[in-house]
């Protein structure tokens, strides 16, 4: 490891939790971005994250798998649930996916609460801190780059076309069901990884961390940042993660501030605060 000056070391140590949250919330924001980018609304990101967190924690605690195997394995359960929810609902247009994913989150919360394997209301504790800061930021950077490259291609054009006008996109030859399913799967993978990383930095996970409220918070990352580029929701997540820290003095009013900012952003900046639009071609 490179030598780090003592003052930076102190800073990193003091703000370690915040630095980890920034990166993990960035991944969650991207997980919301990929679904919104094809014009769908899913509120299942927190549920997928929970599946990744519980799954990875159990693999580590019960089976003692090494982390480099646990991390990819943590995507399996979210992907399977994404297929199970997506196949029946993505045939339909409208809010069915949103409703089904809210339902998924609540069902899973009840499962975590009531089945001993998941630790009930106490959750799972004593998870070793195996996720390093560089892993979180490395995966975040990789996800942004991959999504950026996809955005500037035929696939990105098809996604934007779906968002603007699904009928016209279909007539251009875009298989919209396949794209919706692909987006939901990508979303589940990103959230699953974020969940696994989160579980392995915080040592404890509980059922309420993956309920409806975190789902809405993840949505607000993308609403505030916008979805013009993959970087926009990540920046939105950064703002909404730092804001409660900056407003720490106001304690109880923090959530109110958050809410007001989201309402203002939706009303006055419908394309988000970071509303630049990316070019849609590579050549």
């Amino acid at each position: 490891m490179m030598a780090v000056p003592p003052w930076l070391d102190d800073l990193l140590w003091t703000y370690q939790n915040l630095i980890h949250s920034l990166g993990i919330n960035g991944l969650l924001a991207l997980s919301m971005y990929v679904v919104l980018a094809v014009g769908q609304l899913s509120l299942g990101q927190a549920a997928f994250m929970g599946l990744g967190a519980y799954g990875s924690a159990l693999l580590t605690l019960k089976l003692h798998w090494p982390f480099w195997v646990v991390l990819p394995a943590s995507c399996v359960a979210p992907a399977m649930f994404a297929l199970a929810v997506g196949v029946p609902t993505l045939r339909l247009s409208g809010v069915y996916l949103a409703i089904a994913t809210i339902g998924l989150g609540e069902v899973l919360r009840a499962v975590y609460l009531n089945i001993d394997l998941f630790g009930g209301a106490l959750g799972l504790s004593g998870i070793p801190a195996r996720a390093e800061t560089w892993m979180i930021y490395g995966l975040l950077a990789a996800a942004v780059i991959v999504l950026w490259l996809i955005g500037r291609s035929r696939i990105g054009r098809a996604m934007e076309a779906m968002r603007e006008d699904e009928t016209a996109a279909q007539v251009m030859g875009v298989d919209i069901r396949r794209y919706r399913m692909g987006a939901l799967l990508a979303s589940a993978l990103l959230a699953g990884i974020a969940g696994a990383l989160g579980a392995h930095v915080s040592s404890f996970i509980g059922p309420n961390e993956y309920g409806f409220q975190p789902a809405v918070t993840i949505l607000s990352f993308a609403l505030l940042g916008g979805i013009g580029t993959p970087l926009a929701p990540v920046l939105g997540a950064a703002v909404l993660t730092l804001l409660p820290e900056a407003l720490r003095g106001f304690s109880d009013l923090r959530l109110v501030f958050n809410g007001v900012i989201i309402v203002l952003a939706v009303l006055f900046l419908p394309n988000g605060v970071f509303a630049w639009r990316m070019r849609r071609r590579a050549a």
């Binding site: 035929r154 054009r157 934007e160 076309a161 603007e164 006008d165 875009v174 396949r178 071609r281």
Partner: peptide, 28 residues
């Protein structure tokens, strides 16, 4: 379409590129 359905946020060229969707790669 009778009621025009261009992709308004895209550039003119990107619209036509989207029209070529079926002509390039066959799947995701």
């Amino acid at each position: 379409f009778q009621n025009i359905r261009v992709f308004g946020a895209m550039t003119v060229l990107e619209n036509v590129l989207t029209g070529l969707h079926a002509r390039t790669a066959p799947d995701l």
